[in-house]
Amino acid sequence: GQVHVGDTTYHFPNPEEARKFAEKAAKENNLQVTQHGNTFKVE
């Protein structure tokens, strides 16, 4: 799974890890998570 936060892309071998990371980043920054397959975008 990939997580895009601003201009930075994080790669995770496990989509579940990617999702947890995205949700945590979104919560900390008052942002939203959008999911496209195994790619998550925090914005």
Rank of each mutant, 00 (worst) to 15 (best):
E17D: 12
A18Y: 00
H4D: 09
T8K: 15
N14R: 03
R19D: 03
H11D: 09
N14W: 04
D7M: 10
A25N: 07
F21P: 00
A18V: 00
T39Q: 10
H36S: 11
G6R: 06
T8M: 14
N14F: 05
F21I: 00
T8S: 11
K24T: 11
E23T: 07
N30F: 08
V3F: 02
F40Y: 10
A25G: 02
Y10W: 08
R19S: 05
N14T: 15
V5D: 04
K27N: 09
N29V: 06
P13K: 11
N14H: 06
K41P: 03
Q35L: 06
Q32R: 14
E23S: 05
E16I: 05
V33G: 00
E17A: 10
N29T: 08
V3A: 04
L31T: 09
Q35F: 06
Y10K: 03
F21R: 00
K41I: 15
F12S: 01
A18P: 00
N30W: 05
H36K: 10
K27Y: 11
A22F: 01
N14I: 03
E28Y: 08
V42G: 03
E43C: 10
N38F: 07
G37P: 01
A25R: 08
F12M: 00
R19K: 12
L31R: 05
T9V: 15
Q2I: 15
P15Q: 14
K20M: 11
E28P: 06
E28V: 09
D7N: 14
Q2G: 04
P15G: 09
T39L: 13
N38G: 06
V5M: 14
K20D: 12
A22V: 02
A26L: 02
H4I: 15
H36D: 13
K24F: 11
F40M: 04
A22Y: 01
F21K: 00
E43R: 05
N14P: 01
Y10E: 02
H4E: 13
A26D: 02
A22I: 02
T39W: 08
K27E: 11
F40N: 03
P15S: 11
G6H: 09
G1F: 15
K27L: 13
Q2K: 13
F12A: 01
R19I: 05
E17T: 06
T8E: 12
V5W: 15
V5F: 15
E16V: 05
F40T: 03
P13V: 10
T39P: 02
Q2P: 01
G1S: 14
Y10I: 06
G1I: 11
V5Q: 04
Q2F: 15
E28G: 06
K41Q: 10
Q35T: 07
E23N: 08
A25V: 15
P15I: 15
V42F: 03
K24D: 10
E28M: 09
H11G: 05
R19W: 07
A22R: 00
Q35H: 07
N38L: 05
T39M: 12
T39R: 05
N14E: 05
R19Y: 08
N38M: 05
